[in-house]
Amino acid sequence: MSRDALKEKLKTIATAAVFFALAIILSIIEGFIPSPNGVKLGLSNIVVMYSLFYMKKRDALAIALMKGFFVFLLKGPISGILSLSGGTLSVAVMSLLIVVSSNKVSYLLASVAGAITHNLGQFVVASSILGTPLWFYLPVLLFSGVAAGVATSVLLRLTLPALGKLGKNKNL
């Protein structure tokens, strides 16, 4: 491996690590925000979306997987599986939207789709764990998905300059 390639690779690993740390910090901060019905904003999704839009899609998936593992250690297996199912489905759907629309999908819509499918992934896994479809949670899941998606995309827009300095995108 050439010196430059190695340097690039190390930089990618370091950036991914910093982004993962940022995702964890955001989810801890989120824990301090009181929520009326347990609905979460999914602040760490800002970092996942940034990776998705400006870095490699693989990095976004890696963050979602590591976040799931972290939740597993912190809150136990069930919460870990729920985080993992939501996180991976969300990254998959957002990637698909970006690829299918050939980068024409808006941040807002990608973010809303990501938030809703995050909830949907959890909904499916929760339903199969309990052995009954939890239809009653579906509307809440849609509303909170829209709210969270709008909020995280606005926050991404606001934090883009700072995240751009952290990441490797130089033209921000």
Binding site: F53, N103, S106, L109, V112, W135, L138, P139, L142
Partner: peptide, 27 residues
């Protein structure tokens, strides 16, 4: 990529309508 497109509002309104419909049905 743009931040928001006009068509987004249609998609989001449709999602909210589905949610409201379900909510109405459940109650």
């Amino acid at each position: 990529m743009k931040f928001v497109k006009k068509t987004d509002f249609i998609v989001i309104s449709a999602i909210l309508l589905i949610g409201l419909g379900l909510l109405w049905y459940y109650s």
